[in-house]
C-alpha cells in the first residue's frame, strides 16, 4: 500500500548518493582524475562519437577493453561501475534487442532453427516466414548494440566519476556553450540537493503518520499538496538567491573564467589516453 513512499525515498537517496560518490571518486589519485577537465571533455566527445560510428563488433570489443583499463587505473569502484554498465548492456542492449535477432525482424542466414510453419503467413503488414529462427545478421546486430550501449555508459561513467560536476560543466565553455546556460545548470544542481531534503522530510513524515487503509485518492491529494509546497519553496528560494546575487553586484550576465592552465604534462597524458581511440578510428 505504502510502497510509493519507499520508492520515492529510494529515488531521493540515489540523488544524494550519486552526488556524494561523484565528489569522493573525483578526488581519488587515479589516471583520469589527473587529466585537465577540458581535455577530458575532448576525450569524452571523441570517444562517444567513435563508439557511435564504429560498425564492427571487434572495434567495439576493443573499446570495451580500453575503457575497462581506464576505469581500473582511475581507481574507481569496479563493482559499482560495472553493475551499471552490465545492467544497461543487458537491458537496453540485449533484452530489448534480442527479438530482433529472429528472421521475422532481421532477414538473413538462419543459424538457429526455432520453429517451422506449414507455410509463410501474412498478417496485415507483418510477414511470418515458414522457417522461424535466429539469423547471423540479427545476432551481430544484438552484439553490436549491446557493446555500443555498454561502451557509451562506460565512457560516460569514467568521466562523471572522475570529474567534479562543477568542473565538468565549466569545461563546456570550451565548446562555446553559453555561460548563462552553464550557470542555470549549476544553480539547478544546487537547488535540487537543497529541495531533495524537503521532499525527503515530507515522505518520512508521511510514512510515520500513515497506518491502516488509506484511500489512494487521499494520498494523491496529499502528494499534490506537497508538490505545491515544493513549488512555493522553490519560488521563495529563487527570490532569495536573486536578491543575494543582486546584493553582490549581479546585473544579469555571467562570465566564467577558465583559470586552469593546460600544461605539457596534461597534453602528454591526453595524448596517451587518446591514442587507442585514434588507432581504432583509423582501422
Amino acid at each position: 500500500m505504502f510502497n510509493f513512499i519507499d520508492k520515492s525515498l529510494k529515488s531521493l537517496a540515489e540523488i544524494v548518493g550519486a552526488n556524494y560518490v561523484q565528489w569522493e571518486t573525483s578526488k581519488k589519485n587515479g589516471l583520469f582524475q589527473r587529466l585537465n577537465p577540458r581535455l577530458k571533455l575532448v576525450f569524452f566527445i571523441f570517444n562517444i562519437l567513435l563508439i557511435s560510428i564504429k560498425k564492427d563488433v571487434s572495434s567495439e570489443a576493443f573499446l570495451f577493453l580500453i575503457m575497462f583499463i581506464f576505469i581500473t587505473v582511475s581507481r574507481l569502484d569496479l563493482f559499482r561501475i560495472y553493475k551499471k554498465i552490465l545492467f544497461a548492456g543487458f537491458f537496453f542492449g540485449f533484452l530489448v534487442a534480442l527479438p530482433s535477432s529472429l528472421n521475422i525482424i532481421t532477414d538473413g542466414e538462419i543459424v538457429l532453427h526455432l520453429a517451422r510453419l506449414d507455410g509463410a503467413r501474412q498478417f496485415w503488414i507483418y510477414r511470418i516466414p515458414a522457417e522461424i529462427g535466429i539469423t547471423r545478421e540479427g545476432l551481430s546486430g544484438v552484439a553490436m548494440l549491446c557493446l555500443r550501449v555498454m561502451n557509451s555508459v562506460s565512457v560516460s561513467l569514467l568521466i562523471i566519476f572522475t570529474t567534479p560536476f562543477y568542473d565538468l560543466m565549466k569545461s563546456l565553455k570550451t565548446f562555446r556553450v553559453p555561460d548563462s546556460f552553464i550557470m542555470i545548470v549549476l544553480l539547478s544542481y544546487k537547488y535540487i540537493f537543497i529541495l531533495s531534503k524537503t521532499i525527503e522530510d515530507f515522505y518520512l513524515a508521511l510514512k510515520s503518520r500513515l497506518i491502516g487503509n488509506v484511500k489512494g485518492s487521499e494520498i494523491r491529494d496529499i502528494i499534490a499538496g506537497r508538490t505545491f509546497l515544493v513549488f512555493k519553496k522553490s519560488t521563495a528560494a529563487y527570490e532569495e538567491v536573486y536578491r543575494a546575487m543582486v546584493a553582490r553586484g549581479f546585473s544579469g550576465s555571467v562570465s566564467f573564467y577558465l583559470t586552469d592552465r593546460i600544461t605539457a604534462a596534461d597534453l602528454a597524458l591526453f595524448a596517451a589516453v587518446m591514442a587507442p581511440g585514434i588507432i581504432i578510428s583509423a582501422l
Binding site: 529541495l195 494520498i219 494523491r220 515544493v230 522553490s234
Partner: peptide
Amino acid sequence: SAQTIPYLGMASAFSFLIMMFNVP
C-alpha cells in the same frame, strides 16, 4: 531580464524533482 538565470535554475530543479513524486 536579470532574473532569468536564478528563475530558470529554480524551474529546472522543480522539473527534476517533480519526477521524484511517486503517486499511487
